[in-house]
Design a protein around this nucleic acid. Structure first.
Lengths: 338, 338
DNA sequence: GATCTATAATGAATCGATTCAACCCGCCGA
DNA sequence: TCGGCGGGTTGAATCGATTCATTATAGATC
């Protein structure tokens, strides 16, 4: 049925080794032969079998990437950055969506391991470190993205979430708000915990300021809407006067829910700031203040580190890259329209 | 270095064939042996090599999906639907991003073919049919998504774009607008052409109505912003009084650009309707009217068809599934706030 | 002409899981 | 006692590209 190197070799009247060389080391083959083999390939419609190639090579030319939510533009951009860098080196990126579920995360890691991927990028949920240790022990390096590690055994590329949380809360305080709320979850996500910690630090510095913590089950528009409904249904006096949402999806959901029936005005009654600065934040009902992260750069850099580690092997020095977040002020916290 | 079936067989004191059977046909092996082999697998940390498996099997257990823009939530949802159905049958989905570029599209199709994927789902750009014919001839079935085909050789799952375009334009006309503009591109995309055709049909039915066509180079927020800047910079009298954008990303970009410096009011000066009804449309500066498509269902159904075709082989009857679009009215065309 | 070098080309061995024809062995029925 | 049956198990053959030690050829040098 399918055409293989042997068929090509026969038609071009050369050996299989030569066909292989034409595809992988054309400089080792005379130009005339190259041409003849390529003609044969074309006329037979030969497509090389990657499985056989991989089997021999011992590992694939793919990288695995596990994200928390593929529908979140932040991760879409991160993935794009990763893909770009990978493609420059001839690698492919397989994207798996954990949906913040440990079992799905595990499933993709298993899959990637069976595929003998060159390495794994992961935005981990909960404590995936033991599993990653296992991978590493079997020769598959891993880099954590969007999440720092104290663990010296792994490289990571992330943004200083504590600093970002501080920036956000400090900004809310600077515009005179005192009864802040933090909306986010799950608390299994380090990003969320760190952003909250930063916010708490900022609040502690200002006398009379408080920070209520409203935990959500995920970082989605839906979860934001639910939290927003709860807040809207409170007596006006019990509502916070500012909300820091752990990401922009939550913030968008909050925004929709709060403004329903014109119950709450943003930023009048409640100032709102998100996190990630996704493209849609600027186009929101009330353009959303946010904390910008270099999403594409994170992916790009992570692949860089991963490939270096795969190359250098055991004597690779793990690196913890930490980018700094940036405050973007828009109308949702009283900034002028852009 | 790596552990293989032979090692497992040795430790469990059975043959390699038995190890394989434990993994693939446990019913053919006595319970005691199964247990012994599984112990050996666990204690050695054996992970089966998918490349070897695939080589023997002749094809992988993956499906390829080529989308026009992975950052577009419409395709993110479509991919999720596809993944869900695929996972139910034990398949994996590899997602490739063509970015509306023929060469990237070709690259991913090549890649998928080398990987011997079970089948391909594709939202094609331009005329990919010949290439798909080639794939099919070599045994890889393909299903077109988000795009109908007259071609009987392929299944397709799409939404009636002509009807959707008609719905959108008719709605704009029904609220009294007469000087419509269609913003979209590239015209190599059948979706865009069909939506435009539907709009033209609606406009032709109303005396005194006109439709200007403003072509963009892609269906992105950026392209929308550029088109919006152009329109904003026109003399007020030369601006259309309603715009139908070929998708929501364009519409969001248009919205941002038009409202800059409060130059143009939406829907006052210009009514605006998008297409796809992505989650962010509802949360836009001015909540966006749109044409809703069952994105997740499209992906789900497409995988369904693809797997059936892969199963049945040559005697499979190709099916053209056509969903109907739905008009969603919001403030950007004067609908009441929800 | 003999010797050496550089360049091309060869093809058997290899990667690891799966398959399948052959085999083993205990047991039943004749 | 023997043939037959069938659940378990075996292990060589297989998938297809790549590698590498070996061989062949042409050209250069003395």
């Amino acid at each position: 049925m399918s055409v293989n190197v042997r068929d090509v070799a026969a038609l071009a009247a050369v050996s299989v080794g030569t066909v292989s060389n034409v595809m992988n080391h054309p400089d080792k083959v005379s130009p005339i032969t190259v041409a003849r083999v390529q003609d044969a390939i074309k006329s037979l419609g030969f497509v090389r079998n990657d499985a056989a190639r991989q089997l021999r090579a011992g590992h694939s030319t793919s990288l695995g990437l596990v994200v928390l939510d593929a529908a979140n533009p932040f991760f879409a951009e991160l993935a794009r950055g990763a893909e770009n860098r990978a493609m420059e080196e001839g690698f492919t990126v397989l994207v798996g969506n954990s949906d913040e579920k440990p079992e799905r995360e595990a499933l993709y890691l298993d899959l990637f391991e069976e595929q003998r991927v060159h390495g794994v990028l992961i935005a981990p949920f909960g404590d995936a470190i033991p599993r990653l240790e296992q991978l590493k022990a079997r020769g598959t390096p891993a880099v954590l993205v969007d999440r720092g590690v104290d663990h010296p055994g792994f490289s990571s590329v992330s943004v200083d979430d504590e600093a970002g949380g501080y920036l956000a809360a400090e900004h809310l305080l600077s515009i005179g708000r005192r009864r802040l709320a933090f909306v986010g979850g799950s608390m299994q996500l380090r990003q969320v915990v760190d952003r909250l910690a930063g916010a708490q630090r900022a609040v502690a510095e200002v006398a009379g300021a408080s920070l209520e913590v409203i935990e959500t089950d995920s970082l989605t528009v839906r979860a934001g809407r639910e939290a927003g409904d709860d807040i809207r249904n409170r007596a006006a006096a019990d509502r916070p006067d500012a909300i820091f949402a752990a990401n922009d999806l939550l913030a968008m959901g909050l925004l929709q829910a709060l403004m329903k029936n014109a119950t709450v005005s943003v930023p009048g009654d409640i100032a709102l700031i998100g996190y990630d600065d996704i493209a849609f934040a600027e186009a929101a009902v009330v353009p959303l203040s946010s904390i910008r992260q270099p999403s594409e750069l994170i992916g790009y850099t992570a692949v860089q580190l991963l490939l270096r580690e795969a190359e250098d092997g055991a004597d690779f020095v793990h690196e913890q890259v930490l980018f700094q977040p940036e405050l973007i002020v828009r109308e949702s916290t009283g900034g002028r329209a852009s």
